[in-house]
Computed example of a mutant assay.
Amino acid sequence: MICMATINMGDLKQRFQERQYKLTPQRQIVLQAFVDNPGKHLSAEDVHNIVRKQSAEIGLATVYRTLELLSDMDVLQKMDFGDGRSRYEINEDSSEHHHHHLICLSCGTVKEFEDDLLETLETVIARKSNFKIVDHQVKFYGYCDKCQSSRED
């Protein structure tokens, strides 16, 4: 069985059963790719390259369908960083807000930025607009250390 610290397998199996789906071995292998690559924002192609090493018979279409299903079930969070590819990460129920992302315009690297500096701004906006904010996402675009160095050469 797969050891998933951030995914409760019993809860996940129950959610699959409620939707009349099965937690197949292929779906478990796709989930394992995220568990084995914590903090990474994986595209379908990234996941496919990872799972092919373990199970060569899993096709890219199966990976796409599984990622969409897991995203619909809120197991994975689907994100768009403007590069034409959806990326996914484990949806952490424990965090009140999602972390922010630093996206390199040169190599496409995505890093997480954990500080939630917008709480005060959220409070002001909510109060002034009488709008209950439940979440936000922030993306910063620029150049990572490696790409900055190569641009200076």
Score class of each variant (00 low, 15 high):
150 S>K: 14
39 G>I: 13
83 D>Q: 10
14 Q>C: 03
77 Q>P: 01
66 T>D: 11
77 Q>G: 03
6 T>I: 06
89 E>A: 12
65 R>Y: 02
57 E>Y: 09
84 G>H: 05
15 R>G: 00
37 N>F: 06
89 E>V: 10
136 H>S: 09
42 L>S: 07
25 P>V: 07
142 G>C: 11
135 D>G: 15
8 N>P: 03
141 Y>P: 05
73 M>D: 03
61 A>C: 00
130 N>M: 12
93 D>L: 15
2 I>M: 12
51 V>W: 02
22 K>E: 03
127 R>N: 10
19 R>H: 08
133 I>W: 07
98 H>Y: 14
119 E>I: 10
57 E>W: 06
79 M>A: 11
143 Y>G: 01
13 K>D: 01
92 E>N: 07
136 H>R: 15
112 E>G: 07
32 Q>T: 08
124 V>I: 15
37 N>A: 07
98 H>I: 13
10 G>Y: 13
41 H>Q: 07
18 E>L: 11
127 R>M: 05
102 L>T: 02
36 D>K: 14
100 H>L: 15
54 Q>P: 02
126 A>W: 07
77 Q>Y: 03
140 F>I: 09
19 R>T: 02
74 D>H: 10
128 K>M: 07
52 R>M: 13
48 H>P: 02
97 H>C: 08
41 H>G: 00
20 Q>V: 02
115 D>F: 00
139 K>W: 04
13 K>Y: 02
4 M>T: 05
91 N>I: 02
82 G>P: 10
43 S>E: 07
121 L>D: 00
68 E>V: 04
48 H>E: 08
48 H>M: 08
25 P>G: 08
124 V>Q: 14
